[in-house]
Computed example of a mutant assay.
Amino acid sequence: MDAPQKSGKQTLDEAFDQLEAQLPQRAARAVHWTRGSRARWVRLPLGILAICFAVFWFMPIVGLEWLPIGLLLIALDVPFMQRPVGLFILWLLEKWKRLRARYAG
């Protein structure tokens, strides 16, 4: 019998936990703060702004890396996005770990 599937919230929480573990301490604190209920009013505008930045990926300074950041911020408040975004971020983190391991050893 298959293991029970994680809910969208659980998947997103796991993605955030792994992301915080990979980030420097200062950035991890910022990510942790955005997950809190006090940051709710800031998440959606920041998420939309980050996705807008991703549209201009071809310009200097802004890049495509803003897309997952924006999706993460929006997914915290939009339940139907939690599972797909969580799985996407977990996939990106796995690719990042493999890339780091490849260049470290």
Score class of each variant (00 low, 15 high):
Leu23Glu: 01
Val78Tyr: 03
Val55Met: 11
Ile51Met: 14
Trp57Cys: 05
Phe80Ala: 04
Lys97Asn: 02
Trp41Met: 12
Pro24Asn: 00
Arg29Pro: 10
Leu12Gln: 01
Leu12Gly: 03
Trp41Phe: 14
Trp33Leu: 15
Ala104Gln: 10
Pro4Leu: 05
Arg83Glu: 04
Ile74Lys: 08
Leu49Ser: 11
Leu71Ser: 04
Trp91Cys: 14
Val78Asp: 00
Leu71His: 00
Thr34Cys: 13
Ala39Pro: 15
Arg83Cys: 03
Glu14Arg: 09
Glu94Phe: 05
Leu76Thr: 06
Lys95Gln: 11
Leu73Met: 06
Gly70Asn: 01
Val55Leu: 13
Arg38Ser: 14
Leu49Ala: 11
Leu99Arg: 10
Arg35Ile: 14
Gly86Asp: 12
Gly47Cys: 08
Trp91Asp: 15
Arg98Phe: 03
Ser7Lys: 04
Leu76Lys: 00
Val85Lys: 08
Pro24Gly: 09
Gly36Leu: 14
Lys9Met: 00
Arg26Met: 02
Ile51Gly: 09
Leu73Tyr: 02
Leu19Phe: 07
Ile61Leu: 12
Gln10Lys: 04
Ala104Gly: 08
Ile89Asp: 02
Glu14Met: 09
Gly105Tyr: 11
Val78Asn: 06
Leu49Trp: 13
Thr11Ser: 06
Ile74Arg: 07
Met1Pro: 06
Ala28Leu: 11
Gln10Asn: 10
Lys97Ser: 08
Phe56His: 10
Arg98Trp: 00
Ala39Cys: 14
Ile89His: 04
Leu90Asn: 12
Pro79Asn: 02
Pro45Arg: 10
Ala104Met: 00
Arg102Asp: 13
Leu93Phe: 04
Pro24Phe: 04
Ile48Met: 12
Ser7Gly: 00
Arg38Ala: 15
Asp77Leu: 03
Pro68Ala: 08
Ala27Tyr: 13
Phe53Trp: 06
Val55Lys: 12
Pro68Thr: 09
Val42Asp: 12
Gln25Tyr: 02
Phe58Ser: 03
Lys9Arg: 06
His32Met: 13
Gly86Phe: 02
Met81Ile: 07
Trp33Phe: 15
Val42Ser: 05
Thr34Leu: 14
Glu94Leu: 07
Pro84Arg: 12
Tyr103Thr: 03
Phe53Gln: 05
Arg102Gly: 04
Lys9Phe: 00
Asp77Ala: 00
Lys97Arg: 00
Asp13Val: 04
Gly105Phe: 01
Phe56Tyr: 10
Leu71Ala: 10
Arg35His: 15
Ile51Leu: 15
Leu12Ala: 01
Leu72Thr: 09
Leu44Ile: 12
Asp2Arg: 02
Lys6Ile: 02
Pro4Tyr: 08
Arg98Leu: 05
Gln82Lys: 11
Phe16Gln: 13
Asp13Trp: 07
Leu71Val: 06
Arg38Ile: 14
Cys52Pro: 04
Leu19Gln: 05
Arg100Phe: 00
Val62Trp: 05
Leu93Ala: 07
Glu65His: 06
Phe88Trp: 12
Ile48Leu: 14
Leu67Tyr: 01
Arg100Asp: 06
